[in-house]
Amino acid sequence: MTIDFGRVITAMVTPFDKDGNVHYAEAEKLAAYLVANGSDGIVVCGTTGESPTLSWDEEYQLFQVVQKAVAGKAKVIAGTGSNSTSEAIEAT
């Protein structure tokens, strides 16, 4: 079985507010912008560097927000990497 993720897959950065909290409304806008400008897929909490600083709840909520923002227009890939192998396995 082959899954077509598209030709342009973007590792989306996670926007934060001035207090260091995940800015979900900006994440929604950014995801929509990326898809409107050619991304076929978006990687959330991937290799952009901030994923080790997020809680699992933040990662899950971010994934939900992005998935809703691009529903039917692009694939969303959840980054499940971690500095802990057991946590990465559990998240996956």
Results as ranks from 00 to 15, higher is better:
residue 49 G to L: 07
residue 7 R to C: 09
residue 85 T to P: 07
residue 14 T to D: 12
residue 70 V to P: 12
residue 48 T to W: 06
residue 79 G to H: 10
residue 49 G to S: 05
residue 4 D to G: 05
residue 6 G to S: 09
residue 57 D to G: 11
residue 88 A to R: 02
residue 41 G to P: 03
residue 65 V to R: 06
residue 72 G to M: 04
residue 67 Q to K: 15
residue 30 L to T: 03
residue 38 G to W: 03
residue 26 E to F: 00
residue 24 Y to F: 10
residue 16 F to S: 03
residue 88 A to H: 03
residue 3 I to P: 07
residue 32 A to M: 00
residue 16 F to R: 01
residue 37 N to H: 14
residue 16 F to E: 00
residue 88 A to K: 07
residue 20 G to W: 02
residue 71 A to S: 15
residue 91 A to W: 11
residue 40 D to N: 13
residue 65 V to S: 00
residue 34 L to A: 09
residue 23 H to L: 04
residue 64 Q to M: 09
residue 23 H to M: 02
residue 71 A to Y: 10
residue 29 K to E: 10
residue 18 K to G: 11
residue 33 Y to P: 02
residue 21 N to C: 06
residue 60 Y to G: 03
residue 83 N to W: 07
residue 88 A to I: 03
residue 12 M to S: 12
residue 30 L to K: 03
residue 4 D to A: 11
residue 21 N to K: 13
residue 45 C to N: 12
residue 9 I to N: 13
residue 50 E to W: 08
residue 54 L to S: 02
residue 13 V to I: 15
residue 45 C to L: 06
residue 67 Q to S: 15
residue 48 T to K: 03
residue 92 T to Y: 05
residue 4 D to M: 03
residue 72 G to P: 09
residue 74 A to G: 10
residue 48 T to L: 12
residue 30 L to R: 05
residue 74 A to D: 04
residue 5 F to S: 10
residue 6 G to L: 03
residue 92 T to L: 08
residue 29 K to R: 14
residue 12 M to Y: 02
residue 79 G to W: 07
residue 8 V to D: 01
residue 35 V to Q: 02
residue 17 D to R: 00
residue 91 A to R: 15
residue 73 K to V: 04
residue 68 K to D: 14
residue 26 E to N: 06
residue 80 T to F: 12
residue 23 H to N: 12
residue 91 A to H: 13
residue 89 I to A: 15
residue 51 S to M: 12
residue 17 D to H: 00
residue 15 P to N: 03
residue 20 G to E: 08
residue 49 G to M: 09
residue 43 V to D: 01
residue 3 I to F: 05
residue 86 S to K: 14
residue 19 D to N: 09
residue 85 T to M: 14
residue 92 T to M: 08
residue 32 A to I: 04
residue 19 D to K: 07
residue 24 Y to C: 01
residue 69 A to W: 02
residue 59 E to Y: 05
